[in-house]
């Protein structure tokens, strides 16, 4: 450190896009890279897979029922002779979509409420009591009531599958944002008293930019963690709903539905439980690793170590 401006011998690098730094750090996290690769693989499988593996997942071939793995049916067939691989692929589409959408919804709601409650003291009481109220609600009866009330209306508006999709995402989203909101509020409360927030106030930064520029980037770590846990949670809740018969129609494959249908044959054909179970677990695991790597990459203090 000198008092004089240093003579420039090398070319000054212009400010770099921060996302390049983030990507550089993300690349060094092996688990995160593998997780991301696997998640991309799953995404590709469920979106492009059905175009390659063209067997109709709802096609019933009663003579080929209960078959083990073979060339024609790599994952075997179910009790009605439907191809399990095809059902896994099209079921994955719905499960992953529900997981990501419900996670995004609960994250947005949770972060929004958490930031408002933490930043604006006047809203704190009301919003936190609302959070407590949602936490205290018994989840299953609530889901039953919501599905009973809105299923038909949404079905007629968006078609049977679209309506249920919106319903399930909505239900999972609005019943799982509370943890995020609480964690975010706590962090915002602590951040708000930091001197750099005061410094921004002395510059005259308005509240909304204060939140997006100074508060949100610094609460990213807990948000990221609850996001990765949230995706897993959403896929599993969707499975549970399908399991209870409250989710998608019974002939519509999802990973949860496949799991539910296969439990009847657990003794005779255990592999049928393993496929959807493995798919859910691996997706959740890959997302967790990805979140872990992303959290490290987004923190400049960890970056470069």
């Amino acid at each position: 450190m000198t008092d004089m401006p240093v003579e420039e011998t090398e070319i000054i690098r212009p400010p770099r896009n921060q996302w390049l730094d983030v990507w550089d750090q993300f690349k060094t996290h092996k688990g995160a890279l593998m997780g991301a690769a696997f998640f991309v693989f799953i995404l590709l499988a469920v979106t492009i897979g059905p175009l390659i593996w063209t067997i109709d997942p709802t096609y019933i071939d009663i003579r080929a029922r209960n078959q083990g793995p073979s060339l024609g049916h790599p994952f075997g067939t179910d009790q009605l002779g439907r191809d399990t691989l095809a059902r896994m692929l099209s079921g994955g589409q719905v499960s992953v979509a529900v997981g990501v959408a419900a996670m995004a919804l609960s994250l947005v709601v949770g972060t929004f409420i958490g930031v408002l409650a933490g930043y604006f003291r006047r809203l704190d009481g009301i919003l936190m009591r609302l959070t407590d109220l949602f936490l205290a609600l018994p989840l299953l009866p609530l889901l039953l009531v919501i599905i009973m009330l809105f299923r038909d209306a949404l079905r007629s508006a968006f078609g049977p599958e679209g309506g249920i999709f919106i319903l399930i995402v909505g239900v999972i989203g609005i019943t799982s944002w509370m943890q995020t909101a609480r964690i975010v509020r706590g962090d915002v409360l602590a951040l708000k008293e930091r001197e750099f927030v005061l410094a921004a106030r002395s510059i005259g930064t308005p509240s909304h930019r204060m939140i997006t520029r100074h508060v949100l980037p610094n609460v990213l770590s807990p948000i990221m963690v609850s996001a990765t846990l949230g995706i897993a949670n959403a896929i599993i809740t969707e499975s549970a709903l399908s399991f209870l018969g409250l989710g998608f129609p019974s002939d519509f494959p999802t990973w949860g539905r496949l799991l539910f249908d296969s439990t009847d044959y657990l003794q005779q054909y255990p592999e049928r439980v393993i496929w959807p179970g493995l798919a859910i677990s691996l997706t959740v695991l890959s997302v967790n690793y990805m979140g872990d790597g992303l959290r490290d990459a987004l923190d400049p203090r960890i970056r470069g170590r």
């Binding site: 001197e195 750099f196 921004a200 002395s202 520029r213 203090r301």
Partner: peptide
């Protein structure tokens, strides 16, 4: 605000660690 500014006591705490 542009007319009046402040230099803070703790240079660690007064700079946003993510910027």
């Amino acid at each position: 605000r542009p007319k009046m500014q402040m230099v803070f006591q703790d240079p660690q705490a007064s700079l946003n660690p993510r910027m």
